[in-house]
Amino acid sequence: MESLAPDTAPSAPPPIRRLDPQDPTPAQEAVPTTATSFVAAKRSIAAPQFSIRRMEVDRVSIHYGAKAAVKGVSLPIRQGEVLALIGPSGCGKTTLLRSLNRLTELTAAARLSGSIRLDDVDIRLIEPTLLRRRVTMVFQQPNPFPMSVFDNIAYVLREQGSRRVRKKALEPQVHSALARAGLFEEVKDNLKHPALKLSGGQQQRLCIARALAAEPEVLLLDEPCSALDPQSTAVIEDLIVRLRDDVAVVIVTHNLQQAYRIADHVAFMYLGDLVEYNSATRLFNSPTQQRTAEYVSGAFG
């Protein structure tokens, strides 16, 4: 890593990661400290119309036993925007994300210090099941429940384990959740279809529908497209951008192109530290930190 820094080895150009093979632009000669060779597709989204601060991560550190996974991270999470968490494997993205709805507490060894606030209330003061309906999560592996498409959503809408509310009464809400996740048109003819027999992309959108059915204020997505083909990924990316006005969206991704395409703000983490938090265009094109420049140029990770 050190050899790539211009002051120690000025002749070595930063490695180039070019995704568009037609792009003939040569690497720049003199590279300023913070410039990157990040080459991305055009950003497909317009600037946010508004942004409302919903969550506040305040000097949060998370330890697994003696091992620090997240070290003093502070971040705002805003409705109206998509926030992407990026960084090399094992840098604590998932750990940070899961702490936002207190899922880390399920790991006995995990200890959290600092505070996380949702609408100015410390989440430790919010009863976990209530918090997790306000801050829902979608996982890396599509994991619909082994029941019908309809029942997957109905399960979220009903009180805990109860089955009292009739299916008919839940229909409008189920339909609207599926529609918000862009799945309704594909499944409306057979809502009794077993959810696990949908395609991977459809399953993941069902999981998003499920997370939206709880009417959350914040939606957490942990590498939601890593198991999907490019087409399903594009569909879900569109969906995420459309959702940002209704819910604050936080997405963890290893796909820098994806982060660039859909995120308004990006947080770059490295070994548990938050190295840089910046708007997507700034972080990818003129980062303030050397490590960020190296990472987005594909130098490591």
């Binding site: 709805n101 309906r133 499920r210």
Partner: peptide
């Protein structure tokens, strides 16, 4: 992660186990 998906929409352990 299937259990966690249920917890992550606010379900209790009891409801998750039963349903």
């Amino acid at each position: 992660h299937v259990r966690e998906a249920s917890y992550a929409v606010g379900k209790t352990k009891a409801a998750t186990t039963r349903r």
